[in-house]
């Protein structure tokens, strides 16, 4: 097991997290394998990966919601500028594998979020219920290199199966060692 996977195992156990931590990587490579049979919302693929551990390679044709194409750099806007979009051009979004990921997505409940906020030394959150998992979580975390929380959007809750107590926190991979260090400090204090 790699150091990253060991660290994520420590975090999962501490959080009592039943779902998988989902890695997201944006790549300029046009990857032809590993695409789903049918299109879905980006937030659906993320939830599916969190529940089942499945990994997906996704490009424009795989999304039935057009927002991730813009938020994650697969397409440029034509008519208006869009908030929270990765302006670099990418061809494939890899969802699932944590190794080499840019961003880690935690599908969590409020208590787990509280624990994560302690591990991260606080989270400054901005969200407004639109372009949620793609924009508010993944894109903002990728762009600003800091944790980003979303309480999701109607797309995620009404069409992608997220439960009322589920939310998504995006964390840059480079923050994982400090999270584990903090967990070990907390454990030493008896938490």
């Amino acid at each position: 097991m790699t150091k990253l996977k060991e660290d994520l195992k420590t975090i999962k156990e501490y959080l009592k997290l039943n779902s998988q931590i989902v890695g997201v990587k944006l790549t300029k490579e046009d990857i032809s394998e590993g695409h789903p049979k049918e299109g879905q919302f980006y937030c659906w693929f993320v939830r599916q990966s969190a529940i089942s551990g499945e990994a997906f390679n996704l490009n424009e044709k795989d999304f039935t919601c057009p927002n991730p194409e813009l938020c994650l750099g697969l397409r440029e806007p034509k008519y208006v500028e869009v908030e929270l979009r990765v302006k670099e051009k990418f061809k494939t979004v890899q969802v699932g594998d944590v190794e080499n990921a840019d961003v880690l997505l935690f599908m969590i409940n409020p208590r787990q979020l509280m624990e994560l906020s302690i591990q991260l030394g606080g989270i400054t959150a901005t969200f407004k219920g639109e372009t949620a998992v793609c924009g508010e979580a993944t894109a903002r975390c990728y762009i600003e290199k800091r944790p980003s929380l979303t309480l999701l959007c109607h797309g995620a809750r009404d069409f992608s199966g997220y439960k009322d107590d589920e939310m998504v926190l995006a964390v840059p991979v480079f923050m994982v060692p400090d999270m584990v260090k903090r967990i070990n400090e907390l454990k030493a204090l008896g938490h």
């Binding site: 039935t64 057009p66 927002n67 813009l70």
Partner: peptide, 14 residues
């Protein structure tokens, strides 16, 4: 809703 000018045409075009 400004993002609709992007996501409505795109989803219909697809």
């Amino acid at each position: 809703y400004p993002p609709a000018t992007e996501n409505v045409p795109r989803s219909l075009e697809k």
